[in-house]
Amino acid sequence: MATNTNAAEAAYSVHPMPQLEPSFWGNQVFWLLVTLVVIYFVLSRIALPRIAAVLAERQGTITNDLAKAEELKAKAVEAEEAYNKALADARAEAQRIAAETKAEMQAELDAATVKADAEIAEKLAESEKAIAEIRANALASVEAVAKDTAAELITALGGEADDKAVDAAVAARMKG
């Protein structure tokens, strides 16, 4: 005997293939329609709108985040550009200061050189003047000494020193 016989089965005969037993059909179709209506309402009223909302929200968030990331990236690029520009500016400034300083120093040096040259020239002129003076003095002394010596010699030799003649003779000799 079948092991799972129960009162319901025993009461009437079931088609060997239960799918083809007409007494089952009404029951199945009825409960299927009830089930489908319930599922349809659960899905269309609650589940599907909710999931659609969540998916749309997520899509929105992702889009926003991507836009934000793009913005931040642009900002980063901007900041880098600003940094590079500042760096270049600083370099140019440094070069300018260096060149300026160099030119200043050159000018100072030039001025100092000119001044030094002028001083040297002045001193040279002074020295030359002093030498010329000394020389002139020396000549004058020589002349006086020569006149005196000539007059003394003449006197010592017993002559009468004639100043005019002595002067002329000394001058003639000194032209020599």
Partner: peptide, 19 residues
């Protein structure tokens, strides 16, 4: 095929559309 037999859950013999 026994697994496909429709049975009333709360006893009874008849299977009406609302059973």
């Amino acid at each position: 095929m026994d697994q496909f037999i429709v049975k009333p859950l709360f006893g009874g013999d008849e299977i009406a559309w609302y059973t």
